[in-house]
Design a protein around this nucleic acid. Structure first.
Lengths: 349, 349
DNA sequence: CTGAAAGCGCTAACAA
DNA sequence: TTGTTAGCGCTTTCAG
């Protein structure tokens, strides 16, 4: 009577039969509802184990309208994905919160076109595949927050929203800490001509970072000697360095880059131009990729605890969804400067 | 009469009502079954669009026992994930096959312990959350293939299985091509003392690669001057270089590393020891990370089309699941050597 | 060509 | 404490 035709997959009915109880009893046991005697509980548990049964996710979802799945849509091409390995770590932070609660993460990687991204969210919502989504990297004029509201899809942003959008969000306190430390560090080393090579300014955080640099520099009575907006690629970084180097008299003695990849590419470019880092030029990155530790000179950069950001984001979204038993997650600490070998005293003259 | 109480989400009944047809008709339309007149079809489509309705994934899954979701379990710590950005690209290759067919990818990142990994698969199967799973990186003594069979969970391996396990699989032809080219390249440059720094030999591919190196070297009448098994970390690579360097007379003139991260770390270590690459020492990596292009000297390495591997794996699994309309995917091309600046003529003497 | 109705596996009233 | 039962939204015979 147990199992049978159903392609070998046990159902709650099979378990109930084996345990000699009703399906309701089984349901109550697996869901930890009360009103079940201990012996019965045991019998059910044994039967379930014997049949290797867990409640069907589809049936639970259909019944309760909760899928116990969170969604994430990543709008990036393969290239950018390789260049920025943070994303995998971010996800592993999310996972650490989800799996103890039996949640899964549905991931969509859709490439750059914003419409593809929006379409992915729309489908997630319409097909009711997820209970909520985690958003990252808000862009200038980001339309996702509005879309989520229209879709009535619970959403949480990790990072800084565009225009103070009231979307539920999580971010580290003191976002500006790392870059302020970076500027201070350079100024203390005697640098006065400091350039900044930014990533594309369509991201909220990119603009924010430039403003932090400028304002902190202003606090020291300085202005950035140059601000270059590049495309987060190595080639752009190399070009930027090429342009900044002439004329020598105006040459910045330090360059802060928008990410580590550009910074390392910048160091290489400088070397090709005959400049030695940090003797002739100091360089600071952002992200603190492992890469920074293995290059020579080791890279001074700004560290963020990306995994913790993922943990905190997932926990907050889960709480938003009314999930009980979400573990307490420490708030992400502010980004901070990691001083290594690519920064040194400003060259004299 | 349309929508209502149901928290604003339309159902097939709402659509049927708006279109003035039966739910069966709506179902047939969205599933492209025949037997529906064109005018009716139009009315249904309009109603669905108006209500922003798509079939509920849960209901479809419950009804048809297909979830239209594939699963993937990654057993890696955050550290390793950052160090090897390939994983994200692999996923984006998978996605490119899934999304046109309306499939999703459920991802679990579980950390190193094998049992956690197995548990994740087990849950995926028991809860029937996915129709199949994609496996990668088989290990020596890998128990996952057996587990998948026991679980009756359709699975496909991307890569080389352990002990010719007959699990459905996809891999590039000519796995050994890249490393054979690497050895030939070094030999042509006059190198005779060639060392190999391997990753941990619990992975099938790691052992395979060492064997390729050794056999190709043997083809030239050589043996690897040293074989070091490291842990894929930068520190290990640096240590390895430190050890290989003395005594100078026995020093290898070229080192092949198991991945780019170790190779770059090796270059930095060599430099700290006063060796210049490639003048005093040639270095070859494996993976062709973007990293290799931005360091100085730019890294000679072996390239694999990881995105294509993802595409091919997903397509094959989908086909295995009997999914119609899987697009034809070109088989992944063999890994191949990319010669850049970190290799040069063997030093004389 | 179209519609009525039977479940898919589960949870939550409600009864016993 | 335990069992019975009505759906959740959908697909699929089977009649009309």
């Amino acid at each position: 009577m147990a199992r049978g035709r159903n392609s070998g997959k046990a159902t709650i009915t099979d378990v109930a039969a084996v345990a000699g109880v009703s399906v309701a009893a089984v349901s109550k046991v697996v869901n930890g509802k009360g009103g079940i005697s201990e012996p019965t509980r045991q019998r059910v548990l044994e039967a379930a184990a014997k049949l290797q049964w867990s409640p069907s996710a589809a049936a639970v979802a259909l019944r309760g309208a909760r899928t116990r799945t969170l969604g994430m849509v990543v709008g990036r091409t393969a290239d950018l994905l390789t260049a920025d390995p943070h994303f995998a770590v971010f996800i592993s932070g999310i996972e650490s919160q989800l799996s103890p609660l039996g949640y899964g993460l549905l991931l969509h990687i859709v490439g750059e076109e914003p419409e593809a991204e929006l379409r992915a969210y729309r489908r997630l919502a319409e097909e009711r595949r997820v209970d909520g989504v985690i958003l990252t990297e808000s862009r200038i004029g980001d339309t996702r927050f509005d879309l989520m509201r229209r879709l009535r899809l619970p959403a949480l942003l990790v990072g800084t929203p565009w225009q103070d959008d009231p979307i539920p969000q999580v971010q580290a306190a003191g976002q500006d800490t790392g870059l302020r430390e970076a500027v201070d560090h350079l100024v203390e080393l005697g640098h006065r001509r400091i350039a900044y090579v930014s990533g594309p300014e369509d991201r909220v955080h990119t603009t924010f970072r430039r403003q932090v640099i400028e304002s902190r520099l202003a606090g020291h009575g300085l202005r950035p000697s140059h601000v270059v907006v590049a495309d987060f690629t190595a080639q752009d970084a190399a070009d930027a360095v090429g342009n900044l180097v002439e004329p020598a008299a105006q040459r910045p003695t330090a360059i802060v880059f928008g990410n580590d990849t550009m910074a390392v590419a910048g160091v290489s470019a400088a070397r090709r131009l005959g400049l030695e880092v940090p003797r002739d030029l100091s360089v600071i990155g952002y992200d603190d990729l492992p890469l920074g530790e293995i290059v020579h000179p080791r890279l001074t950069t700004v560290n963020q605890d990306v995994e913790q950001l993922g943990r905190a984001g997932a926990a907050a979204l889960l709480a938003l969804l009314g999930e009980a038993g979400v573990s307490d997650v420490a708030p992400p600490r502010p980004p901070s400067l990691v001083v290594r070998e690519s920064t040194g005293p400003a060259p004299r003259g």
